[in-house]
Design a binder for these strands. Sequence first.
DNA 1: CCGTTGCTTCGATCGTCATCGAAGTAAGGA
DNA 2: TCCTTACTTCGATGACGATCGAAGCAACGG
Lengths: 230, 230
Amino acid sequence: MEPDISDLARLIGDPARSRMLIALMSGKALTATELSLEADITPQTASSHLSKLVTQDLLVMRKQGRHRYFQLNGYPVAELIETLLSVTASQPNLTKTGPSDPDLRQARVCYDHLGGALGVGIYDSLVARGVLEDRHAITRLTDDGERYFIRLGVDFDAMSRSRRPLCKSCLDWSERRTHLAGGLGQWILNDLLMRGWGQRAPNSRVVHITAPGRKALVERYGIEASLASA
Amino acid sequence: MEPDISDLARLIGDPARSRMLIALMSGKALTATELSLEADITPQTASSHLSKLVTQDLLVMRKQGRHRYFQLNGYPVAELIETLLSVTASQPNLTKTGPSDPDLRQARVCYDHLGGALGVGIYDSLVARGVLEDRHAITRLTDDGERYFIRLGVDFDAMSRSRRPLCKSCLDWSERRTHLAGGLGQWILNDLLMRGWGQRAPNSRVVHITAPGRKALVERYGIEASLASA
DNA sequence: CCGTTGCTTCGATCGTCATCGAAGTAAGGA
DNA sequence: TCCTTACTTCGATGACGATCGAAGCAACGG
């Protein structure tokens, strides 16, 4: 007898619940009210849904005074959502949305790292420069790549302490190609944001790149200039 | 606007449909009648469900006379199902099944490669022997490993012609650890079956290992003897 | 040709569950 | 203290879709 996946799938299969899960792919913790707005439902409906998602371990909840903050319950859940997004996006018969948001395709947060055309462009450039090695869809950091990132400021000692993979290929749903996940993928996104080269949109996963940030990304990662344009 | 994953999830979220999808994780093509027996529903209900699964690209169908053979629509779908299995198995609040089938945990087909304790045991042993390198959950074949598999009879030229990754880590739902997927994972399963060291159970994903097969696996892959016992 | 088997389509039935109005509790702040 | 806001619980309602009996079409084999 294998695990019964239908409960899990059915849990995600409700439109309101799936919209809330997608919103939480931003990696942020959102309140119940924020999530009800995301899903365009009343707070009482959201409350009922969120209770289910917490009971069945897809979300974790933290109380802060009267606020209830919800987050995805870790990386496996994010991976599952991204896999669903990827399969959905690659199967035209399942896609009934109109033209997708160009900003979202350009650059967006994929849980804790950068996705979209920009994320893929950085990945490709790093591979072309011998920083990463992509062999049969397996991604690893080269020795040169390690030195490259040390120069950029990465603390590999701290990163090694985590069981988190350094490089992990993450199939980008909008580009259908690989962007970088893992510890280094996360570092790249955080670095970009901390330097002010881009900002996260307040209520979506979009990452807007500034004009100076564009130049900096071209220079830093060797991406094509057209990829960093707004 | 992101892809709407709720349709896909809801499609899998029906108990009868999920049972059929799991049955097809054996990698075999099954007829509509066989699938209706798997799901314990009438043929007419199965027909209705299968039509949906084909229309929405989760399954492909081939007619042979009066027989309709259904298969999973490729590796991304298998990956999605295995991810669902893994998340389900790791979340006790979602698991309401009784003790799992020990044969299924021992050795089973995961789409086209070997999973279960045996699959994980082979993986661990290959890592310990320097055939595979598992670094931060990324799996790659070492140079020694390439020679090792050439000696075993692997044709890497033929395998390189496929875009299929050589080694891919696949998270095993019963062991919660990695077994080997990709071209080499597939080769190992096929080799084992062709040599008669084990046989597939007729109506499940279980792989039964013969007594001589046990010895051979211990010798060939250096697994612990206890792992190959029935 | 005819009976059997595999599979599909149709439509009525009924179980499931998302939804929100109403009501209530708790936290925050003036 | 009192008003506002965040959130939960309850229960009735109605939309949705899985299900199977009935019927039909096509392939197979004696």
